[in-house]
Amino acid sequence: MNTNMMRFSFSSQSRNEAFARVTVASFVSQLDPTMDELTEIKTVVSEAVTNSIIHGYNSDPDQMITIICALSDDEVELIIQDEGVGIPDVEEAMEPLYTSKPDLERSGMGFTIMENFMDHVYVHSREGEGTTVTMNKQFNRSKAMSQ
C-alpha cells in the first residue's frame, strides 16, 4: 500500500487557521479530491483548530496545536491535537447546538459539521491534558459511483 504522511505544529493564533487549512488541503490534494470535497476538509480543519484555540487554550496565543495527516490510496486520516483544558463530557460536547461559550456567539455546531463532512470522528479528551480529534474520510466515492 501507498502511504504518505505529514505532521505540523503551529502557535494557537487565529491567523494560523488559514495556514492550517492550506497545509492540510494542499497535502490532501495529492489524492485528487473534487473541489467540494476539498472545501469540506478545509471547513473541518477550521472548526477543529478554532476549537483548540478558543476552548482548548482560552485564546492564549502562545500554545501549540499539532495536525497529523496520513494518506493511503483514496483515504485520509486527520488528527488535530491540543494540550489545552480538555473536555469534561465529550458526549455532551458533541451534541448539536451544545456550546460552553454562548457568550462568544458560538453556534455549537463544530462537532456536528465535522461528523457531517467526515466518515468517522473520534474525540479523545482528558481534563487538564488536552484534546485529540481523529477523523477519517474516503474520497472519490461519488465520482466512482457516477461512472
Partner: peptide, 9 residues
C-alpha cells in the same frame, strides 16, 4: 456535469 477534481482544474 459535476464538480471537477482539483487535478482537472
Amino acid at each position: 456535469n459535476r464538480v471537477p477534481t482539483i487535478q482537472e482544474i
